[in-house]
Design a protein around this nucleic acid. Structure first.
Lengths: 197, 197, 197, 197
DNA sequence: TATGAATGAGCTTTCATTCAT
DNA sequence: AATGAATGAAAGCTCATTCAT
């Protein structure tokens, strides 16, 4: 019984993981439930034993990882640390979550449009809110006098977020560099820029 | 006759522009030909007088702007200029093309998957090739000793490209800052970083 | 053992009664086996321990009540009683069975289409046969010179049957009037009509 | 052009009429769009050129006939006529609409459950409202002292309505008796009853 | 040029039914 | 006696595409 329950739960995890992978590869709309069912070894009708709808499956794919990045970043912003340390941790957090939940995060960033309803109705963090946290972080840096005040904060936020988010298009979890190494490069560029000291 | 041909050409431009806008707003797959036809004031069947297929329409939406960014960047990389100047121009070029052809570029960056066949079959620049140009540019900076050699070039390329490309998600052509102003912020961050000098 | 058998039998009665209620509320086709299973507190697969198919369940819902109305009416028609008394009893029988087996009878009258196969194959009374009994009854009244001969018998049969059967749409077993009281009103109208004597 | 428009409109009428016939024969849920499409000579997908959904098709099947019976009965109830004449006309109206729009009315009476949403949202008369008109009519008869006061008005209403509505189950538009002849029988029974004067 | 009508493949979803445990 | 898991057929609906006019 306990075994059966575990099997069922693992089957569901399998479905969600497979969906994440396929959504990432082909996009949410282009992936059919038949694709997913075939990949986990069942018929499309059988999926409905585990999920309520394709949209809900999308939601299951992204829910936990989103909560994770978001709450971690929240903690970092609220922490009592020097600004440069916070930025380093924020970037590292971002890349680490990418690494741990790669296809899920990629799906979230690419197919957010199909998610907004579900997210809002479940009071989950939307991309917009994540961005606001970055803005807050940058503003702390300015207030502390640690970062230049000759750049537009909003644009700086877009710059950092773009640098980090774009990883959904190239990141490879089994790649050459660890997430921390990638984060280190990004942090260096973000703080000191490319030019030699 | 010539007038008729002009009208026809302008009708086609209208269709392509409208498609760009709608693809940007709702995504390629979620936009139906009926949506586009309705927006230009005709019936969906009539579109086929101007286009061969939906996929071709997508191609028409992105073809020219892509050629533009790509060839401009090519010229910049090949030019005989100091590295920092080249970077500044590359970023400015990027943002300017965004500004001039906003929805088109956004469609290119978001729905590239549906384009790859068409692109390759037309020997058009793919995202990968554009990225290679940036890599070349960065390598020139290293060779010239102008940029730090303690960062991974590939990662630095991803960082800059991400910073610039991500604009497809937030850029507003009628926004507060001109493309050149945005480019200036990005260039500053890319070269000197966020910390005070 | 006997206890187990009783429990099993009572479980089956529960299923049939629940099915009757749900079929009545939402219609045969709109009611799923899952609805029924949930209402009796089991899973849909488990129902098949008690029934062979959904169609058989429908049959079980209506079988006994139908037999009851039908055989009662048969007895009334065959009895040696004055016509007016027979009509009164026929109507009272009808309303009483409605009262005792409300949702079952309602299902029979509404979803007869899905039943015909099962009924005929079990030599059970169909709506048509019940109607023939009423026709016989009316013909007895004409032959006895007790009812007017200026009305078409068939139509008169439809009129009475309609009056009685339509109750499946409005009757409420826990309503204000008893089945006998309803039958009295109907009998009065059927025999004397609405106008004042 | 005018010809084309007529053809399109007639095609739609054909679809609605065919749907009415099939819904009547097999019920709303048991009738598939493929059935309807095949009967009018097209593919199921093509139906959507004419209708928005199956539910809307059901609505189109019943809308006009319902309005007709209802507004006619309204006029009769409001008219300045003796009660017996009103009853006669109300019954004749009912049977005439049955005759003119047979399968449509039958569908309305049988599959009302699938219609309630659409009806309420379009402020169309529901079965309940039709019944209220009959109640009003009967009350007028009582107030005028023309009908017996020893019968429950509500039950009398159900009796008459049942007599008339049940026709949806047996009426045959090409049958032996005209709708007026049927109405005459029903009126006689309703007013004088079955017993000889 | 453009329309109106139809196609047909493919999609998500539902559900009665089966069966090993 | 009942469960959990899966099946598979069929449903309603969408939409790019075609084509005679």
């Amino acid at each position: 019984m306990s075994k059966a329950r575990n099997e069922s739960a693992s089957r569901e995890r399998d479905i969600v993981a497979t969906a994440a992978r396929l959504f990432k590869e082909k996009g949410y709309r282009a992936t059919t439930l038949e694709d997913i069912a075939a990949a986990v070894g069942m018929l499309k009708g059988s999926l409905y034993y585990y999920i309520r709808s394709k949209e809900e499956l999308l939601y299951l794919v992204v829910r936990d990882p989103i909560r994770e990045v978001y709450s971690e970043l929240e903690a970092i912003v609220a922490a009592d640390l020097p600004f440069t340390e916070k930025i380093a941790r924020a970037i590292a957090n971002h890349m680490t979550v990418f690494h741990l939940h790669y296809p899920h995060i990629a799906v979230y960033l690419h197919d957010y449009r199909h998610l907004m309803d579900k997210l809002e109705q479940n009071v989950i963090e939307t991309p917009k809110q994540y961005q606001r946290l970055w803005d807050t972080l940058l503003r702390q840096g300015i207030d502390a006098g640690e970062i230049r005040d000759d750049v537009d904060v909003t644009m700086a936020g877009y710059a950092l977020l773009g640098m980090c988010n774009w990883a959904y298009r190239w990141y490879n979890p089994s790649g050459r560099l660890s997430p921390q190494e990638v984060a280190d490069v990004f942090t260096k560029i973000a703080l000191q820029g490319l030019t030699r000291a």
